[in-house]
Write a protein that binds this DNA or RNA. Structure first.
Lengths: 253, 253
DNA sequence: TGTCGTGATCTGTGATCACAGTTAGGTTGG
DNA sequence: CCAACCTAACTGTGATCACAGATCACGACA
């Protein structure tokens, strides 16, 4: 009865063990039960988030709850919960009578998203420049090195570049020490992720153009000088350059 | 076997028919199937949102899926979906092994939320001042009048004031013509709603102090002059005044 | 009188089943 | 050969059942 013998396995990445950093200065007993509990629904949510953020799920692609459930080896229930959450964030959309699919951004939607990102992430960059510790700056530098390596490789390692770029940005935002803000930015990236990364996958030569490399270097220097205004400008340049490229090449209508 | 004969009916408000404003310039046929289809889960989500935004659900209050389902006359399933969505937005939180409850903001969380609101809503005010049509400005003025009436009544009509204040702010944000931005602000308000409105309910004399009235007047004048900078400043004053009052009176630890 | 154990009852989570609506494919009639 | 119908498969939604863990109150023991 099964229409195809081989179920369409989704390209799942391994569970990234995002080990919570242990809070210092607590009795050993206090941290025991903390990281144990993770719901299946949360796991599926994280899985789908990763797929979206890395562009493995293309805009317009349709998902089936049952297919996803089968691919992940769980029942339909946790998938429903995950899709509900992501749909609430507009990271997925459910058509009235049909299937659930990855939203396709119109040009004007993408432009608005970019403007919001400039405001919110620009603010995060300012705060990060004010508050960043030496260790946090070093972390950003580490991801910057990884990004440059991936971009300058022959041929460019687009997958590694996408990951390094994401890590670099969020290492910066974490340095702002504003959890709500970081969550908000994650939601924005979830919306933009599919186009951004789908494009980078198709057009790896954008990497060696160097606009991102230049912006990242300026960002790091501003961070080291604790110069909020320069950090914001550098980040805005980075976002704007990527957005302009997307608008030219990968946007419908 | 039921512990109490009278199930604890939630104070549900009637379904506010938030009739979507008809998009102008469309064939009548195009909007037929649009508002027909509403899932039970979506309805419950809207219901809970209203309860949160209006402060009918106090911070720390615990909810039971079965109780809510019973109160709304639906099965547990749609409630689960609604709670999943709201929990994804941190408008509700589910304790690991326990119940789901309205989050209790710490002082530092509230401060961060306020700072983010200043940035995001300040930007929205700027854009609104640039783009607002005469009709949109009139709409804001209408809600301002309603707010002043509620605030100056004897005794002050706190419920009407909360509604008018919300309508005023979102009429402003709508004028920015950035849907993603408005959604983002709605999420912020959902987090702050419980404390803000719980406080206004307990301390109605904050209304006649007039800081909000003054800020709203300045906002309207800036809007009429299409002065983005003044609009931002007025809105920031409004947010800051309310936040300072909350910090003084209604915050734990 | 204070404290610990214990069982009933509640919690959210997950799975399974039923259903109405839609889609797509295959067949039939022109 | 093309178009229209019609059926079978698949969609998300909702309900119901089962289960492990946590809470709370009552009662026994010190």
């Amino acid at each position: 009865m099964v229409p195809r013998v081989q179920p369409p396995r989704l390209p799942l990445h391994p569970v990234e063990s995002s080990q919570a950093s242990p809070a210092a200065g607590l009795s050993a007993l206090d941290q025991v039960g903390a990281l144990l509990h993770e719901t299946l629904g949360e796991r599926v949510t994280r899985e789908l988030r990763g797929l979206l953020a890395s562009g493995r799920l293309a805009p317009g692609e349709k998902l089936s709850l049952r297919r996803v459930a089968e691919a992940l080896g769980v029942s339909m229930m946790p998938v429903r919960e995950a899709v509900s959450r992501l749909a609430a964030d507009r990271a997925l959309e459910v058509l009235p009578g049909r299937a659930v699919r990855v939203p396709v951004l119109t040009r004007s939607q993408f432009r608005e998203l970019t403007r919001v990102r400039l405001v919110v992430e620009g603010f995060a960059a300012e705060e990060a420049a004010k508050n960043a510790t030496a260790a946090q700056i070093a972390e950003v530098a580490r991801h910057d090195a990884a990004f440059r390596a991936a971009a300058k490789a022959e041929p460019p390692d687009t997958v590694a570049a996408v990951v390094a770029n994401r890590d670099l940005h969020f290492a910066l935002y974490e340095a702002a020490a504003m959890p709500t803000l970081v969550e908000m930015i994650e939601r924005l990236w979830l919306k933009a992720g599919p186009i951004l990364n789908l494009d980078m996958r198709h057009e790896p030569r954008r990497l060696d153009g160097g606009s991102a490399v230049v912006a990242h270097a300026a960002l790091l220097e501003a961070l080291r000088r604790h110069d909020p205004q320069a950090a914001r400008t550098a980040l805005e340049d980075d976002i704007r350059a990527a957005a302009e490229h997307i608008e030219r090449t990968a946007l419908p209508e």
